[in-house]
Design a protein around this nucleic acid. Sequence first.
DNA 1: GTCTATATACAGATAGAC
DNA 2: GTCTATCTGTATATAGAC
Lengths: 217, 217
Amino acid sequence: MPRKTDKRVRLIEAAKALIHKQGFNLTTLADIAQEADVPLGNVYYYFKTKEAIGIAVIEKRGQEWTERLASWSQHADPLMRIMALLQYSLDELDETARYGCPVGGLCQELGKQGGPLSDLAAKLLHDMLKWTEVQFEKLGFSEKASSHALDFISSIQGMFLLTHTFKDPKIAEKQAEHLHAWLEAITSRKAEAPVRVVEVREALEVVEDFEEEEAFA
Amino acid sequence: MPRKTDKRVRLIEAAKALIHKQGFNLTTLADIAQEADVPLGNVYYYFKTKEAIGIAVIEKRGQEWTERLASWSQHADPLMRIMALLQYSLDELDETARYGCPVGGLCQELGKQGGPLSDLAAKLLHDMLKWTEVQFEKLGFSEKASSHALDFISSIQGMFLLTHTFKDPKIAEKQAEHLHAWLEAITSRKAEAPVRVVEVREALEVVEDFEEEEAFA
DNA sequence: GTCTATATACAGATAGAC
DNA sequence: GTCTATCTGTATATAGAC
């Protein structure tokens, strides 16, 4: 049963998909209206400007990522949470090979332009980065947590760029394996390093608080 | 003394800079004409279409990279060659923080659109990747050469994306340090691995042939 | 080879009937 | 709330004088 805001939702979904496929600047309001099966003129009842649609799309992606991250935060082991993010990056590989990372694409295209769209896109990556950093902290890394998070997110983005450029899903699979091995290496190396295994256990317990704070709303 | 092709060169340089700053789709022919100080109508004497300018710009970048790679190939030590590429990625960091990697940006934006522009942009990254692969081979890596090259180029691209997204040159500096350490680690680890140091010497000699083939034209 | 004026197309955005 | 018709600006591209 179509509610009052049904068309608004359809427009956002259509815009989200088209912007991923074509980029923001190349996607026209006519494209979006057609894809959402809404007359062009009616679009302006829901969004004053094209930029307003862009904002809504990025915020929608932000909301989806918040939910995703909260969902993965339910894993007891922070390493499994990070692995879940890595695993997720391999879902729908054919689409990412064709059109690139939806988030990375927005950051790249809109980052040049400045304005609210640029800032909102950056926030998407920022939230991912911070979440990953928290997981590394819970794994017992203190000073190195932010560094590892940067390595991880940066590697995933590089992986997506090459996968997209060469239209080759195998590149992502290969790089994901490397990242997987890297994660295992730095976490098992921990046992031999100054950090105690006991501290890892403590970190895993702290996890409970985190989940209550940030799990599904 | 301005030659016949002077305006053509100016147009390509103007387009190259503007496309880096604004992206291809957002850059208008009027922008390019103004920046090159050429009347708009006159642009079409040198380029039939906007796409033709795009092709010329990407080919120009390709040519510059060919020269750069050939120049670095003059280092006797393949590791130094790769380090030179890494070092280069830190030149003009303020610009890359503002506008991202010129090559990565083209691959991202044009990769979605298909056509000759997409293919030419991909070739830029492809050439870098292959050159890097050759250097790793000369370092004595055989099966792992392509894997290491992928890791390296992918990491640099990820580094650029985050640097650009967060407008923070320090991110590139930090990631470049990691990459530097990684390069040192995998190459010094070689001494203990099955690969012989003798083989490295042999590899270094093969270098001579390579230089003759691919040095400055 | 050069440049002004303009054609053509289509984008974002609005007016106003229903 | 919905939709048709349209305005306005601007981008690519062309015509044709010089």
